[in-house]
Deep mutational scan, measured.
Amino acid sequence: MDVFMKGLSKAKEGVVAAAEKTKQGVAEAAGKTKEGVLYVGSKTKEGVVHGVATVAEKTKEQVTNVGGAVVTGVTAVAQKTVEGAGSIAAATGFVKKDQLGKNEEGAPQEGILEDMPVDPDNEAYEMPSEEGYQDYEPEA
């Protein structure tokens, strides 16, 4: 019985440690998101679009440190934060509304985080759909 109880105690310690790591990862992701939003706020009209992409990228980098179902929630929060940063930029006159959601080359930025393969159960990952990809044929 002692062996059984000791095993359960060790398992509990492992769960607590994993929860603490997840909590730490979420806190880091939130900190990076805040950094990115402050970065966007300090940019001029020309830099705002690039700044919004930076927020998304920093958040995406930190999301990889967070495991399990938390990833889905962090990704949703990050996307809403990026959308909010863009709205703030438009409201303050840093950028025109028609410039939001495009990178410096004018290509749409939507789907940055949505296409990231995420499995809350950590069982399997699927690649994003290939609808947006084109076949590449090298020139002879």
Results as ranks from 00 to 15, higher is better:
residue 1 M to Y: 00
residue 2 D to C: 10
residue 5 M to Q: 01
residue 6 K to E: 03
residue 7 G to P: 02
residue 8 L to G: 00
residue 9 S to L: 11
residue 10 K to A: 08
residue 11 A to H: 02
residue 11 A to G: 04
residue 13 E to R: 02
residue 13 E to N: 14
residue 16 V to W: 05
residue 20 E to W: 11
residue 20 E to T: 07
residue 20 E to N: 12
residue 21 K to H: 07
residue 21 K to A: 11
residue 21 K to V: 09
residue 21 K to C: 09
residue 23 K to Y: 08
residue 25 G to I: 11
residue 26 V to W: 11
residue 33 T to E: 00
residue 33 T to Y: 04
residue 33 T to I: 06
residue 34 K to M: 14
residue 35 E to Q: 07
residue 35 E to I: 15
residue 36 G to R: 13
residue 36 G to Y: 14
residue 36 G to H: 15
residue 37 V to D: 00
residue 37 V to T: 00
residue 38 L to A: 10
residue 38 L to M: 15
residue 38 L to R: 13
residue 39 Y to C: 05
residue 43 K to F: 01
residue 43 K to N: 00
residue 44 T to S: 06
residue 44 T to G: 11
residue 45 K to H: 06
residue 51 G to N: 07
residue 52 V to R: 03
residue 53 A to T: 01
residue 58 K to G: 00
residue 60 K to E: 02
residue 60 K to Y: 08
residue 61 E to S: 06
residue 62 Q to D: 07
residue 64 T to Q: 03
residue 66 V to G: 02
residue 66 V to C: 07
residue 66 V to D: 02
residue 68 G to A: 00
residue 69 A to S: 06
residue 70 V to I: 15
residue 72 T to C: 04
residue 72 T to I: 14
residue 73 G to D: 06
residue 73 G to R: 13
residue 73 G to C: 09
residue 74 V to N: 04
residue 76 A to T: 13
residue 76 A to H: 11
residue 77 V to E: 02
residue 78 A to P: 01
residue 79 Q to E: 08
residue 79 Q to A: 06
residue 80 K to F: 14
residue 82 V to N: 04
residue 82 V to R: 07
residue 83 E to F: 10
residue 85 A to P: 05
residue 85 A to H: 02
residue 86 G to W: 09
residue 86 G to T: 04
residue 86 G to N: 09
residue 87 S to C: 05
residue 87 S to W: 01
residue 87 S to K: 05
residue 89 A to P: 07
residue 90 A to W: 15
residue 91 A to V: 04
residue 94 F to E: 07
residue 96 K to Q: 14
residue 96 K to H: 06
residue 96 K to A: 15
residue 97 K to H: 12
residue 102 K to T: 07
residue 102 K to Q: 09
residue 103 N to F: 08
residue 103 N to Q: 15
residue 104 E to L: 14
residue 104 E to F: 10
residue 104 E to K: 00
residue 106 G to Q: 15
residue 108 P to E: 15
residue 112 I to V: 05
residue 112 I to D: 05
residue 113 L to G: 10
residue 115 D to T: 11
residue 115 D to I: 04
residue 116 M to W: 12
residue 117 P to L: 06
residue 118 V to G: 08
residue 119 D to F: 12
residue 119 D to E: 11
residue 119 D to G: 13
residue 119 D to S: 03
residue 119 D to I: 01
residue 121 D to E: 08
residue 121 D to Y: 14
residue 121 D to N: 13
residue 122 N to K: 05
residue 122 N to Q: 15
residue 123 E to Y: 05
residue 123 E to W: 01
residue 123 E to F: 04
residue 124 A to H: 10
residue 125 Y to M: 02
residue 125 Y to T: 12
residue 125 Y to K: 10
residue 126 E to I: 04
residue 127 M to Q: 07
residue 128 P to L: 09
residue 129 S to T: 08
residue 130 E to I: 15
residue 130 E to R: 02
residue 131 E to H: 11
residue 132 G to A: 13
residue 132 G to R: 04
residue 133 Y to P: 15
residue 134 Q to M: 05
residue 135 D to S: 11
residue 136 Y to S: 11
residue 138 P to M: 12
residue 138 P to A: 08
residue 139 E to Y: 00
residue 140 A to T: 08
